[in-house]
Amino acid sequence: MSLNLDSKKVVVAQVSETLGSAQTVVVAEYAGVTVESLTAIRREARKANVYLHVIKNTLARKAVEGTKFAPLAEKMTGQLIYGVSEDPVAAAKIINEFAKANDKVKIVAGMYNEKLLDTAGVKQLASIPSRDELLAQVMGVMQQIPASFVRLVAAIKDKKEQEAA
Rank of each mutant, 00 (worst) to 15 (best):
V50S: 10
V50L: 09
H53L: 11
I55E: 10
K56Y: 13
N57P: 15
L59V: 13
A60T: 12
R61Y: 13
K62N: 13
A63S: 15
V64W: 11
E65S: 09
E65Y: 10
G66D: 14
K68G: 14
K68E: 14
K68C: 01
F69C: 07
A70D: 11
E74H: 10
M76F: 15
T77F: 14
G78F: 11
Q79Y: 08
Q79T: 14
L80S: 08
L80V: 06
I81D: 09
Y82G: 07
Y82S: 02
G83N: 11
G83I: 09
V84I: 15
V84L: 14
S85T: 07
E86Y: 07
P88E: 11
P88A: 14
A91F: 04
A91L: 06
A91M: 00
A92K: 00
A92D: 02
K93D: 04
K93L: 00
I94T: 05
I94D: 00
I95N: 02
I95D: 04
N96R: 02
N96C: 02
E97K: 11
E97Y: 05
E97F: 00
F98N: 01
F98V: 03
A99M: 01
K100D: 03
A101F: 00
A101T: 00
N102P: 04
N102E: 12
D103K: 08
K104Q: 12
V105I: 09
K106L: 02
I107A: 03
V108I: 13
A109V: 02
A109Q: 07
G110F: 00
G110H: 02
G110K: 02
Y112V: 07
K115M: 08
L116D: 10
L116P: 10
D118Y: 04
T119S: 03
T119F: 03
T119E: 15
A120Q: 14
V122I: 06
V122S: 07
K123P: 07
L125E: 06
L125A: 10
A126C: 05
S127W: 09
S127M: 09
S127R: 03
I128K: 11
P129Y: 05
P129W: 11
R131C: 06
D132K: 15
E133Y: 04
E133P: 03
E133A: 11
